[in-house]
Computed example of a mutant assay.
Amino acid sequence: MNRLILVCVALATLSSALIRFQCSQLVVQRLDPLVNPGMTPSTHVHQIVGGNSFNATMDPKKDMPKESTCTTCSFSEDFSNYWTAVLYFRARNGTFKRVPQSSQITGAKAGITVYYMQDALYDTAQKSKVKAFQPGFRMFVGDVNARTRDEVTRFRQLTYTCMDNAGTRAPETLAFPTRPCPAGIMVNARFPTCWDGVNLDSPDHMAHMAYPANGTFESGGPCPATHPVRTAQVLFEVVWDTRQFNNKADWPTDGTQPFVWSFGDATGYANHADYVFGWKGDALQKILDTPCVVNCAGAKTQSTAAMNACTQKAVVNENVDGWLKELPGGHEVQYGRKGD
């Protein structure tokens, strides 16, 4: 039994699956085949996990499982790519340093913890039936230009948790924490769960997906008529290890918090995430249809060593680590606007 995908969950009578697994880091660089397809480098730095066929264009007609030779995810048939922006620490002297990540799975190399859920995380029964995404599917959530609370609330649950210990999961905030976080900052990105059933993508990578017509995903709200197909909720958890930056004597003298996204947002409201589906065959649908919680019978997994061994050399030749005089791409630090 693969210990990578075991968590302590109270078991109940199950009808469907709740999946939680780790994906180690594949590469950190400025590429974004969704928002900036074909652009090398893209506008800002991302951290990417999943199949090693990741590239600047990601042709939706390509078979990702066949294009990849390995994946950084513990489910060995998942060649999807999942990515987020990168967090930087802004020092008093104006220099920046990339914040490292810590894994929730012992031995895994940084990366992202991924969930696929039919129902709310606390509902271990996972009673709803959902449709797996199809080859060529991709989606985006968030607004890279958001700088106020009002601009981010429409996305529902793009949040931060200031972790006092490894088990801290509340409270969640929409903006960056304003105090030092003893165990790091957890960033959550929850994607919409209603699909139009036709389009695998849309110009903004969001319009083909929607939130429930009323209520929420957690309350079992129905999908709107325009987007009638219920999918699993994809959730990213990323833990940024901020411990080495928790000395407030190193924070800005104006009292503001010191963390900034790789594209310059210092409010935290521009939290966003990208997803490109790449599971092999019907592997995901089979798991979602299997009564299980996390450890699903028949799901093919791989060792931590195999996950960590799957890497990709950055095609963008620039320094994204160490102490930098400016954010890669030359982004300026941006604070909240009126209405924050």
Rank of each mutant, 00 (worst) to 15 (best):
N52L: 04
V35S: 14
S24L: 10
G38E: 01
L31E: 15
S42T: 10
R20W: 05
L34I: 01
P33E: 12
N55V: 00
L34G: 01
S42M: 02
A17R: 11
T57G: 04
Q47C: 01
S53V: 04
L31V: 15
V49N: 11
S16D: 10
N36G: 01
P37E: 09
S24W: 06
A17H: 12
V28S: 12
L34W: 00
D59F: 02
V28T: 10
M39T: 06
M39Q: 11
V49C: 05
S42G: 06
F21E: 03
N36I: 00
A17D: 13
G51F: 12
N36R: 10
V27C: 06
T57Y: 12
P37K: 07
A17G: 13
V28I: 15
G51Q: 14
V45A: 03
T40H: 02
V35I: 11
Q25T: 15
S42D: 11
L31K: 11
L26F: 14
M58N: 07
F54S: 06
N55A: 02
Q29G: 08
C23K: 06
L26T: 05
M39E: 03
L31S: 13
Q47V: 02
P37Q: 05
I48N: 01
V49M: 04
Q25M: 15
F21Q: 08
V35W: 12
L18V: 02
T40R: 13
I48V: 10
M58I: 03
Q25C: 08
S53G: 10
V45Q: 09
V49K: 02
A17Y: 10
G38F: 03
M58Y: 07
Q29Y: 09
S16K: 15
R20H: 13
T43S: 15
D59W: 00
A17M: 14
S24Q: 13
H44R: 14
T57D: 08
G50D: 13
G51E: 14
V28H: 12
S42E: 00
V45M: 08
Q22E: 02
F21C: 05
G51Y: 08
R30I: 09
M58T: 06
P37Y: 06
R20E: 05
M39W: 04
T43D: 15
V35N: 14
H46V: 05
M39K: 03
S42H: 09
H44C: 11
D32H: 09
H44E: 13
L26P: 12
L31I: 15
S24P: 08
M58G: 08
R20V: 01
